[in-house]
Computed example of a mutant assay.
Amino acid sequence: MSDSDRHRVIRELLKERPFASVRDLQKVLGVSAATVRRDIEKLHETGLARKVYGGISAAEGYAAGYASARPYNENRDIAVDAKQAIARVAENLVADGDSIIVHAGSTCYYLGIRLARRNLRIYTNSMPLASYLGEHGTCQLTVAGGELHREPGIIHSLQSSSPGFFASKFFLGTQGISNEGILESHPLLVKVIRDLSECADEIVVLADSRKFSLRPRHVVLPLPRISTLVTDEGISDKNAQMIESAGIRLMIARRAGDEA
């Protein structure tokens, strides 16, 4: 397969999904990781796609139209290295004895795993995380009451707006980020996040850099409501400036092998 053929396949793949990892592309193209990385560099240089941490993302102009949320089981296998690096950095924001809220979502799940045996009070509405903490954790665990909403993958009671749990920090992911704020496509997530945001002193967003390319239709929280954002090295200078200009503490997660 020629260079141009591989580039065409990658561009077609990015019409179906907003992000593809190096490993994804190796499987699709049947080439080495080094060849994939050269293809990513070329597409990035020509503006046909965007190089991000661990792979490639659709160019911002195209990805802005991508609005539908992926199922949890599918999303958890995307950008895993970036999410785990973000969780590792976010863990350092938690002190022993803290009471925290950890929202549903794959990046928050990786954070919860790291906190499982810490001296903490954790509230979560994530069934996968609650199950893991119940079996493997020693932290004090409070699980949201109500029904399981498989899409968007949270436990929530439609009759209650407040969990009655107050935290020092609320950790959450997001489907997209823009200068308007953090974005979601599912109305229930909008309501749940807004309710939980009233129960914490600080809001910490965990989002890999591809989220800056996505534009779901609902603004959940404006940027000034966010205290800290943890992302990966794929964030562009433009987006980093947008975050810092909003008064948000920006933390960049690097792979373990890249840390000094």
Rank of each mutant, 00 (worst) to 15 (best):
201 D>I: 01
158 L>D: 13
106 S>H: 01
251 M>D: 08
46 T>D: 15
113 I>A: 02
4 S>C: 00
60 E>G: 10
60 E>W: 11
29 L>H: 03
185 S>R: 10
112 G>K: 01
131 S>Q: 13
2 S>L: 14
8 R>A: 15
100 I>N: 04
75 N>S: 00
17 R>L: 11
31 V>S: 06
49 A>Q: 09
88 R>L: 13
134 G>E: 07
231 T>K: 08
33 A>M: 06
260 A>G: 14
4 S>M: 12
70 R>S: 14
94 V>D: 05
112 G>Q: 02
158 L>S: 12
164 G>W: 10
145 G>Y: 03
244 E>G: 00
209 S>I: 06
35 T>S: 14
153 G>F: 03
87 A>S: 03
8 R>M: 11
99 S>T: 15
72 Y>E: 07
234 G>A: 02
124 T>L: 08
9 V>H: 09
208 D>V: 01
76 R>L: 01
24 D>W: 02
117 R>F: 00
200 A>V: 05
81 D>P: 09
225 R>E: 09
133 L>N: 04
232 D>S: 06
192 V>T: 14
94 V>W: 09
37 R>M: 13
87 A>T: 04
41 E>V: 14
152 P>K: 04
94 V>F: 09
148 L>C: 01
33 A>Q: 14
36 V>D: 08
257 G>S: 11
51 K>P: 00
22 V>H: 05
80 V>D: 01
47 G>H: 06
85 A>E: 08
116 A>K: 07
99 S>Y: 08
51 K>A: 13
122 I>L: 08
237 D>H: 10
244 E>D: 04
21 S>Y: 02
6 R>M: 12
43 L>W: 07
24 D>I: 04
254 R>A: 01
148 L>E: 00
220 V>Q: 08
83 K>Y: 02
212 F>T: 10
160 S>D: 13
39 D>H: 07
187 P>R: 09
73 N>K: 10
235 I>F: 05
188 L>S: 09
108 C>P: 01
115 L>S: 02
76 R>A: 02
54 G>N: 06
245 S>E: 15
48 L>D: 15
237 D>N: 14
24 D>V: 03
111 L>P: 00
84 Q>H: 08
22 V>G: 05
191 K>R: 15
164 G>Q: 11
85 A>T: 05
118 R>I: 02
23 R>E: 15
65 G>W: 13
44 H>M: 05
90 A>V: 09
190 V>G: 01
113 I>S: 00
219 V>K: 14
26 Q>W: 01
252 I>H: 05
118 R>A: 02
135 E>N: 07
228 T>I: 15
158 L>W: 06
61 G>K: 12
55 G>V: 09
121 R>H: 10
